[in-house]
Design a protein around this nucleic acid. Sequence first.
DNA 1: GTTAGCACTCCATGCACTTGAGTGCTAATA
DNA 2: TATTAGCACTCAAGTGCATGGAGTGCTAAC
Lengths: 345, 345
Amino acid sequence: MTVEIDDRKKTILRAVVRSFILTGKPVGSSAVTEITGLKVSSATIRNEMGVLEELGLLIQPHTSAGRVPTDIAYRFYVDMLMGQRRSSASDNEAIEKLFNARTREIEGLFQEASLLLSRLTHTTAMVFAPFSAADTVRHVELVRLGDRRVMLIVITSKGLVGRRLLSLDLEVKNETVGRVAAHLDSAICGLPVERAAASGVAGKARFGEAGRELLACALEAVIDYLGAIEDRVFIGGTANIVREMDAAGTEWAQVLLEAMEKQYFILDLLKELLRERRLTVRIGEENSLRELQRCAFVGTSYPLGSGLLGSLGVVGPTCMDYERTIGMVELMAESLGRRLLEPED
Amino acid sequence: MTVEIDDRKKTILRAVVRSFILTGKPVGSSAVTEITGLKVSSATIRNEMGVLEELGLLIQPHTSAGRVPTDIAYRFYVDMLMGQRRSSASDNEAIEKLFNARTREIEGLFQEASLLLSRLTHTTAMVFAPFSAADTVRHVELVRLGDRRVMLIVITSKGLVGRRLLSLDLEVKNETVGRVAAHLDSAICGLPVERAAASGVAGKARFGEAGRELLACALEAVIDYLGAIEDRVFIGGTANIVREMDAAGTEWAQVLLEAMEKQYFILDLLKELLRERRLTVRIGEENSLRELQRCAFVGTSYPLGSGLLGSLGVVGPTCMDYERTIGMVELMAESLGRRLLEPED
DNA sequence: GTTAGCACTCCATGCACTTGAGTGCTAATA
DNA sequence: TATTAGCACTCAAGTGCATGGAGTGCTAAC
C-alpha cells in the first residue's frame, strides 16, 4: 500500500502543478516530458502519472485529457516541492511606500494594506485587527446633537474610540449634557469595566429627570461598548473573486462575495490564525468554511503591539501561485508588524 | 418628425417594459396582445411596435426576435408610464426594525442601512454620510502606545472622531505625553481651524525636545484631520452585482466591483445628489461614470441633522423594477432621516 | 525498467438540417 | 383610413453526424 514517491515522481508532480497553475489547462504526458527535461519517453511519464493518479494526487477531467492536480497534490506541493518564496524588489517597494507615511489614520492603514495585498497577489485579501479587551476608560465625551439626541464618545486606555448615538425620551439642555459628561468622565475614568457600572450611577441625585435618563443611557452604552469586542476586518480586492472564479460559475462567486460581506463569517477563520501564530495554508476541503472549500487560503499573524496579535490572509483559487502568494503574505505581515511596533521592541 | 405617442402606443410600451423587467426575455407582438388585453390583432401591435422602434424606444436583438426596451424607453417609462411607487408592509417592518434599536454606533447604522436596502431591492446599495465641515475642536487626547508611538484622538464639536497614529523620532515618556495632551487640549479647544495652528505652538518652550516634537507632530495631524473631509461611503450588496450582471459577462461585473472598492469614485455621484435634493434616476448612458453606463442608478438625499444632507442610492440593471426600487430608496431615505433628526425638527 | 506502437476514448469543431418564434409586407376588409 | 389575415422570410437554438486531434492504456519488444 505504501507506494514510495520517488524523486522522479516528485519532479513530474511538480511539473504538473506548476504547468497547471500557469496555464489552467490539463497537463499531458508529453508536456511533462518537455517541461521537466527528463530523459525518458512520454510513455514512462504516463505510467508514473497513472501511479500518481492512483495515489489520489492527480485526476483526469475525462478519459482522453491531461491530468489536473488534486487538493492533496497542492498540499504535497506546498509542503514538499515548493521552491523559494518569492517577492520581487518592486513589491517590496510598493509595501514600503504604503508604510512610510508619517501620520495616518490607523483604519486607513489596515484598509490600504488589504487593498495592496490583494493587488499584489490577484486574490481577495483580508486584514484582521482585534481591538478587543479594552480594559479601562480614559475619557468620556458627550456631544449634544439635538433636543433628544446625544452622541457618546468613549476613548479607552488602548486608544480605541467608540461612538454611540443616544436617543432620549426627554429633552436635555446643553448645560445638562456638559454636567453629565463631566460627572461620568470623572466617575469612571481609569476604572476597569466591572466597576464602571457601580461608580457611574453614584451621585445621580444631583441631576434632574432628563439628566438622570441621559446618565443611565450613556452608562449603558459605555458598558455595551466596552463589552462588545470591537474586532475589525478589512477586506480588499473582492473584484478578484469574479476574475478568478469565472470557471467555477457566477453562482459560486456570488456565494463567496456574500460571505465576504458578512464579515463575522470570515472572522472565525482569522481568529484561528491568532492561535496558530505561524503561516497557515488551507487548500480546498481543508477549509472548515464551506464557502471556501473550492478555494485556497493563505494567512498568518502579525504583532499589533502590547503583546497583541492580528492576522491577515488571502483567499484565491486552489491553483494559485503559492510561492508568490506565501511570500507576499509573509512580507505584508512582517511590514505591518514592523510599522505597528516600536523599532526597539 | 414629431410622431404622436398615443395612448395605445403607451400601453404597448408599458407592457413591453414590464414584461421585459419581469422575464428578461424579448417581448413579441402576440405576448403584448395577451398582456394588454387590447382588442386588436398582433399584426396591429407589430405595426405599432415598428413605429416605437423607429422612435428609438425599442430594439430587436436580431431580426426574428421580440423587442427589448432601450434606455430611452426606460426613461420614458419612469417619467410617464410608471405606476404607484411600491413598498410592502413587510419592507416597512424590516426598516423599522433596523431603526428602533435605542443605542447604536452610527457607522454601524449606516452600514446596516446599506445592507438592508441592497437586500430589499436586489441591487448594490450605497449610503453617503458627509461628515465634512467640522468647525472646531472639542477635545484632543494623546495615548502613548510605545516609546515612539502615540495615538492622537480628535473629537470635534459635531461629534466626529479622528484617530491618527504618530511615529516619532525621539522617545517620549508617559508623563510628557500627558502634559503635551493637556496643553494641546486647552490651547486649541473651541477654536476654529484657522486659529488652531497658531495657538497650539504657543508655549511650546515649556517642553523638552521630545515634547516639542510630539506637540508639532500632533498639531500637524490635528490640522490635517480637520482639513481632510471625512466623507464616508457605506456599500452593501456587492454580491448582487454578480447575480444581475451575469448576462453582461463577468468582465463587466469585475469592473463594477473595482469601482465600488474605489469609493471615492462613487463619491462624486453621491455628492451630486446633495445638490439635486430630490429623487434622481439615471438610466444607462445618462450616468456620467463610464462604469455605470450599463446600469441604472436610483438615489436621493436625506437630512443628516444640523441642516446637513446625506445621500443614498442603489445601482442595478437597467431592467430593474423601478416602482419598487424607487419606493424603497425613498422609504429608506425618509426613515434614515427621521432616525437622525429629532422628532421635533 | 523503459519504450515504441497502436487501438481506443472523448472533446471540440464544423456542417447540415429542423424547428419555432417572430417579423415585415401585401392585399383584402370594415 | 385603420385593421387584419395570410404568407414568405429571417434567425437563434437545438440536434445529429462526421472529423481531427490530444491524450491515454495496454502490450510486446528491448
